[in-house]
Design a protein around this nucleic acid. Structure first.
Length: 558
RNA sequence: UGGGCCGUCGUCAAGUGGUUAAGACACAAGGUUUUGGUCCUUGCAUUCGGGGGUUCGAAUCCUCCCGGCCCAACCA
């Protein structure tokens, strides 16, 4: 790592706190997911921020599940979330917490606020509460129950807790200011009755704390110093501060930052859940999704995601990061680490007329030109080989350097090869195979006479090829900001997944373990999928290589 | 006159009264190359949403205006 100073407004605030001694130089953050979905790259931003800051300031970062709503939360998600954070490379050590573990203490705090006349049980209906809250431009009206005695409030709350009332009959509210211009300060709800079994406390509670009451207490109880959250909680900060001030307990500093948006995808759990529920994608780990599990399956590495989170920076203004930056970080990582291999996606058979039928010529290939320690391997050359259909054109346009009738190219690590004849289907006109000749002295791909060739093609021996399924991915959406569309399902990219069944891979890929990442030379980075079996390997295309020829083609089309 | 927040290159983003206004991605042009990959070189905001003002000096301070986002779930 270079010695580039990380700088952003949150680090500036922490530096200032350290200068003034606000938290005695301590830094203690937390990542507080609600277990109601899988983590996505937006969460990764927050994880890298919270764990990263703790690391850099010699502090600590807790993992805390904010499980205050049993109607939405599930055990499955608490497992997937832990798996993903660990995979990203972060460690909360023994600091795994659950908001639900604090329910008894929260309940005591609530009673304390009642006793000091700062909370009351409201018995209006949900509709009345909404009505009397007013609007952003008109102030609200106080509840008729606002001045119940502490005794009555305590009694009612206890009975709410014990399940004596039905959902919606009563709530506990903070007594703040019904005419505050900040809607959140108009006697916000602290507890609501929910007769739902909680994934951890089961049926112990009939009331559950609301976010605003619960979250500040969770932070306070854990001794958090800097409570980092996204920008839409800015309006909640006065309330966060109000509870802690009125309870007179440890008071962390809440700081808000802009959440991550990426173009051509969606980041909200609501939208992601919908794509899964409607089977538009195969699940939370569909490789087209920006979920951590999807990216992992697609072939992204933890390092690339962490680098990405580093590169996007941190600020308060809302922004949309270009997908090209994510792709850049995975190419950058895999370029150094992935072994090169040859694979043909859309095979075109080539017969080498001047090569003996049965002969196998073992050629030497470099595994990774960026990493000498990756070593070398041999690849078999035979009379019949496959090349990429897109590497041959009968009537090549100007800037096409590859194979064409009468033209000579190099086969990577093999020979210079000249196209002599094109065999077509008499009826359809489709090109069936090519007849070519090689130049024996060019063995290894060298050019003893100094003759130049404009292209080098990848190829695979027909006799030794491994038949493989390859899944090609593009952006899930056709529009840069799908969340802004009326209905996201209208802008799904019909080409977001393309399955190629008849691909031919180099022999050495035969027994690679699942999740292995390789570069198919000239094509891109690929990752062996979980769906693979011994007889039927499957690879996902993580990302293509940068491709000048594709750019030229695009330009010419316009 | 509800309140809160935000506006620096195509996209992110440093910058906190004196800098030639960082850096990355993208883009463009060259060089190297047995991957049209990688790598290397070069270019890419006389200007910081706009107008006024303070100052010897403003992206940074003041002021007005314009634009965007958030808040009226018993969600988080």
């Amino acid at each position: 790592m270079e010695n580039k100073e990380k700088t952003n407004f949150i680090r500036n605030i922490i530096d200032e706190h350290n200068r003034t001694g606000r938290f005695d130089g301590k830094v203690h953050t937390r990542f507080p997911p609600e277990p109601n979905g899988y983590l996505h790259i937006g969460h990764a931003k927050s994880i890298c921020l919270n764990f990263g800051i703790a690391e850099d300031y010699d502090g600590l970062c807790n993992l805390r599940f904010d499980d205050t709503n049993p109607a939405k939360e599930e055990e499955e998600f608490v497992h997937s979330i832990q798996k993903d954070i660990k995979w990203l490379g972060y460690d909360w050590e023994d600091r795994l917490y659950f908001a639900s573990d604090y329910f008894p203490q929260m309940y005591e705090f609530a009673k304390e606020l009642i006793r000091s006349g700062k909370a009351y049980v409201d018995s209006q209906s949900p509709a009345e509460i909404r009505e009397n809250r007013g609007t952003v431009k008109e102030s609200g009206k106080p509840s008729p129950y606002r001045n119940r005695s502490a005794e009555e409030n305590l009694n009612l709350l206890e009975r709410m807790k014990n399940g004596e009332f039905e959902e919606g009959e009563h709530v506990l509210r903070a007594k703040i200011d019904m005419s505050s211009p900040n809607m959140l300060m108009r006697d916000p709800l602290m507890y609501r009755i929910k007769k739902k079994a909680h994934h951890r406390t089961e049926n112990e509670w009939n009331i559950y704390p609301m976010y605003d009451f619960a979250h500040c207490l969770e932070d306070s109880l854990e001794g958090i110093t800097h409570s980092l959250c996204s920008i839409e909680f800015e309006n909640n900060r006065p309330l966060y501060d109000w509870f802690l001030e009125n309870l007179n307990i440890h008071h962390p500093q809440q700081i808000e930052f802009a959440r991550l948006n990426l173009n051509y995808t969606v980041m909200s759990k609501r939208l992601l859940s919908r794509l899964i529920a409607e089977n538009i994608v195969s699940g939370w780990d569909d490789p087209r999704l920006p979920t951590i599990s999807g990216l992992r399956r697609r072939g992204y590495t933890p390092e690339s995601i962490r680098n990405f989170c580093e590169k996007i920076g941190l600020a308060k203004r809302e922004s949309i990061v270009d997908m090209a930056l994510l792709e850049h970080t995975i190419r950058e990582d895999l370029n150094k680490r992935a072994n090169r291999v040859m694979g043909v996606l859309r095979p075109l058979k080539v017969i080498i007329d001047n090569f003996p039928e049965e002969e196998v010529d073992d050629l030497e290939a470099i595994n990774n030109p960026e990493d000498e320690t990756a070593g070398k391997r041999t690849i078999p050359f035979t009379k019949e080989i496959y090349i990429e259909r897109t590497d041959f054109m009968e009537n090549p346009p100007k800037k096409f350097f590859r194979l064409a009738p009468g033209r000579e190219v190099r086969l990577r690590y093999a020979y210079f090869m000249k196209c002599e004849k094109v065999i077509k289907d008499k009826i359809t006109g489709e090109i069936k195979e090519l007849h070519c000749t090689i130049d024996p002295p060019s063995r290894g791909g060298r050019s003893p006479d100094g003759r130049k060739v404009k292209a080098t093609l990848h190829w695979v021996s027909a006799r030794f090829a491994i038949d493989t399924e390859i899944r090609l991915y593009e952006n899930l959406f056709e529009v840069p900001n799908p969340a802004a569309e009326e209905d996201i399902t209208d802008s799904i990219n019909p080409n977001s997944l393309k399955i190629l069944k008849n691909c031919k891979l180099e022999l050495c890929t035969k027994n690679l373990p699942v999740q292995t990442k390789v570069q198919f030379e000239r094509l891109g980075y690929f990752c062996k999928d979980d769906d693979s079996t011994a007889e039927h390997p499957v690879f996902n295309r993580t990302v293509t290589l940068r491709d000048v020829w594709k750019k030229i083609q695009k330009r010419n089309k316009k």
